[in-house]
Amino acid sequence: MHTPSSSRRLILVGTIALTAAMPGAAHAEGWDMAGDIGRNVLVGAALGIPVIKGDWQGGLQAGGSILVGSGITYGLKRIIPSGRPDGSDSRSFPSGHATTAFAAAATLDNRYGWKVGVPAFAVATFVGASRLTARKHRWYDVVAGAAIGTGSGLLLTRKRNSSVRLLPFGDSKGGGVSFAMRF
């Protein structure tokens, strides 16, 4: 049975997992691991919250959003060679972690509203920042991944409650969040 706070509990568990990972984040490897945890928590939340709520359509939409965003990113990585800042390979553009995290966050926001969306986007932003700090990506790799993920999440997920909207935006000079409420 779903309680109104079960979605927030799942996001809280993810936040606790990220906090537990922070002591290990002093080095690039620690930031890489923290980004992995954040991404995995968001994917788990995007797929798990619909299960908890008995919202099978929402689960299918979340899975589709993550798969489409990841597929686009994978294709771009293959056709646009871009070396990573750490020199490990030439598959830096766009960030797959950012794509997946922002697809999950946008899906959660679009489907369940800002109370779930705000913490989800905060975790997705952390994932993007972790990729920069771990020297796996440049800022534009992360921004491109975030745009692809957010786009797939918003385009492939139908709103369950359309009275409040949260939409991140950004360009080369900065970014922010737009907030709208319908009365």
Rank of each mutant, 00 (worst) to 15 (best):
H2C: 12
H2S: 09
S5W: 08
S6I: 09
R8Y: 14
R8L: 11
R9V: 12
L12E: 10
L12I: 06
V13Y: 12
G14V: 00
T15Q: 10
T15C: 11
A20M: 10
A21M: 09
P23H: 12
A25M: 09
A26F: 10
A28D: 14
A28P: 02
E29C: 05
G30E: 10
D32K: 08
A34H: 06
A34C: 15
G35E: 02
D36C: 12
G38L: 01
G38R: 01
G38Q: 00
L42V: 00
A46R: 00
L47H: 01
P50G: 08
G54R: 13
W56N: 08
G58T: 02
L60I: 08
G64T: 05
G64H: 03
G64D: 04
I66D: 02
L67E: 08
V68R: 03
S70H: 07
I72S: 05
I72K: 06
T73Y: 00
T73A: 14
G75S: 05
I80Y: 06
I80R: 12
P81S: 07
P85T: 06
G87E: 09
G87D: 11
S88P: 11
D89L: 15
S90M: 13
R91Y: 14
S92T: 10
F93Y: 14
P94R: 11
G96F: 01
A98Q: 01
T107K: 01
T107L: 04
D109G: 14
N110L: 15
N110R: 09
V116I: 14
V116S: 08
V116Q: 03
G117H: 08
F121Q: 02
F121R: 00
F121T: 02
V123G: 00
V127E: 03
A129Y: 13
A129I: 05
R131F: 04
L132E: 01
L132F: 14
T133M: 11
R138F: 13
V142E: 03
V143H: 04
A144V: 03
G149V: 00
G151H: 05
S152Q: 02
G153L: 01
L155A: 10
T157R: 13
R158H: 14
R158F: 13
R160K: 10
S162C: 12
V164I: 08
V164A: 15
L167I: 07
P168D: 07
P168M: 15
F169A: 08
K173Q: 07
K173R: 07
G174S: 04
G174V: 07
G176T: 07
S178W: 04
S178K: 10
F179G: 09
A180Q: 06
A180V: 12
M181R: 15
M181P: 08
